[in-house]
């Protein structure tokens, strides 16, 4: 099979206000085989500014994947999700909900708002790291992501 020769750095946006979870996710991704760059924002307003490349985020890349917590200050994760998925220029970016909530209502609501998938954060640290790696494996090794602005070599 013909794999793309160029190695592309995967840009991941983590929207998470819990510093412990941010640190764990960072560590899980740092040790991964896949080259990735993790961007972190800790509230919903910053997440939207980042994605829309507004204010201090003008030079930020369009992420390949968004990891989104539901409980966030200033603008909650449901609102962020709804805004991404109704924005013609952003809606194709896969959004993985990563939250402590196990409430069936949150799960259903998220899928109805077109979350690409919903994952309950495990309480156990090791499990959390494992889950972050699984997300990365699945979305970057198995799934074909939209290429966005980048063109195929030719």
């Amino acid at each position: 099979m013909n794999h793309e020769a160029k190695i592309k750095l995967a840009d991941i946006l983590l929207v998470e206000d819990n510093p412990g979870d941010v640190r764990l996710a960072r560590e899980a991704l740092k040790e991964s085989k896949l080259l990735n760059k993790l961007y972190e924002v800790d509230d919903g307003m910053k997440a939207m500014a980042f994605l829309r490349q507004e204010g201090g985020y003008a030079d930020m890349p369009r992420p390949d994947l968004v990891l989104l917590d539901l409980n966030l200050p200033r603008k909650n994760g449901r609102e962020v999700l709804a805004e991404i998925k109704t924005d013609e220029t952003l809606k194709r970016i896969p959004v993985v909900i990563l939250t402590v909530s196990r409430a069936e209502e949150d799960v259903l609501k998220s899928y109805n708002l077109h979350a690409n998938c919903y994952i309950s954060k495990p309480f156990d640290m090791e499990q959390f790291v494992k889950v972050v790696r699984s997300i990365e494996d699945f979305w970057f090794s198995i799934v074909r992501l939209p290429a966005g602005d980048t063109k195929d070599e030719g």
Binding site: K91, R92, I93, N116, R144, L145, P146
Partner: peptide, 24 residues
């Protein structure tokens, strides 16, 4: 399909993910 157009179209239509079926 590996066509970029199909990939984009699928995500725009809100596919949860797009996976190319390997021939092997």
């Amino acid at each position: 399909s590996k066509a970029e157009e199909d990939v984009l179209r699928a995500y725009d239509l809100r596919a949860n993910c797009f996976i190319t079926k390997p021939s092997e």
